[in-house]
Design a protein around this nucleic acid. Structure first.
Lengths: 203, 203
DNA sequence: GTCTATACGGGGATAGAC
DNA sequence: GTCTATCCCCGTATAGAC
């Protein structure tokens, strides 16, 4: 039943399977976190055995890195697009916080992983090191504009602080959602810096 | 609850073994994190078998809780002592940051664990939930004094923000120590709030 | 009370058949 | 490309030696 269409660069069977695996991993990781999900769970969800999964990915963590990278492809345009002006960048960041409040599974995954990945030989170490590097750069140049002629803190420091604040808020929020309003806290910090943020009201 | 006062407060054999296990667990957890260390590792390091460890602790995670609780007995007086005035509390907090910069293993352990423990059924979930609850309370009342008649942010928000900032800084610092100055960042934030901090120069 | 020996189920990973 | 079979390590539980 499978006729090849060599002219059309359709997905190969392997690529389709790879896709199914990543979809399954994304769903399961988002729901239950990384640790609670086994390769065999992912495999069952994708319709093959765990050894089959390991044919497409060298390790369980490789599936994770792939999931994270995919997620970033959604968020990256909101933050890294060079066409964004500084205010838009900050607004998008607040928007991401908002959205994250609806997917605690994924937030939890990032929190756990960024901590685990501080280990230099963790497979996601490079991913996270690079990620923060890029985000700090991007935010620094945004704050360089937004904080021009303001005596508060340097753009570099503001960048580090904002990223740290967002990460830390996530942990507290995951532990006690009713005690922490991530969005309000972030906006308060920005106000403290002297940065005005357009409040986008999408509830 | 009257404690017996033995004439010779010598440790029993069991207590000494327990101590050895905790010391081993602390060292190994601090070096490699929680997950990367097995009961058999701890046992070997303490000079017995893994079943022997489980005679003294009901589970691997029980050793972890013990390690954390023990560590808190060092820091708690610096933060929770009711005799502290608000400024001292903040100074002590900054001092703890300073000290943490010298023990990345322990910082890493806390970072990993606080993230892992956001899972509701994680054995350290209660520990961390309670920990943040207490710290937020304590910091809120401190900021209520330090931020009196200041329009910046509410004491509650400042408490949440400071804790979040410290946690987030730790992750970035662990990933790229040369790019993040935890102490300077924290002090900058406090200055932003309008809180003056006595700089204790103990290098 | 302290500890060893041992076994169980489940995890990630590998080898080789199909 | 995917399977089965297998390996080794993990946390945990139990039986019983001392």
């Amino acid at each position: 039943m499978t006729e090849q269409t060599p002219e059309h660069p359709r997905l190969t069977k392997g690529e389709r399977t790879r896709q199914r695996i990543i979809d399954a991993a994304f769903e399961l990781f988002s729901r239950s976190g990384y640790r609670a999900v086994s390769l065999r769970d992912i495999a069952a969800h994708a319709g093959l055995t765990h050894a089959g999964v390991l044919h497409h990915f060298p390790s369980k963590e490789a599936t994770l890195i792939d999931v994270l990278t995919r997620r970033d492809q959604v968020d990256a345009p909101l933050v890294l697009d060079p066409g964004l002006d500084s205010a838009e960048l900050i607004e998008n960041l607040v928007g991401i916080i908002e959205r994250n409040s609806r997917i605690p599974g994924l937030v939890s995954l990032y929190a756990k992983l960024s901590a685990e990945a501080t280990d230099p030989d963790h497979p996601a170490n490079f991913y996270f090191t690079r990620r923060y590097e890029i985000l700090r750069e991007r935010l620094t140049s945004a704050f360089a504009i937004l904080l021009a002629d303001r005596p508060g803190v340097s753009p570099e420091t503001a960048a580090v602080q904002l990223l740290a604040l967002l990460d830390g808020l996530q942990v507290q929020w995951l532990l006690a959602p009713e005690s922490v309003d991530m969005r309000a806290s972030a906006l308060d910090y920005l106000r403290l810096l002297g940065v005005a943020v357009e409040e986008t009201d999408d509830t």
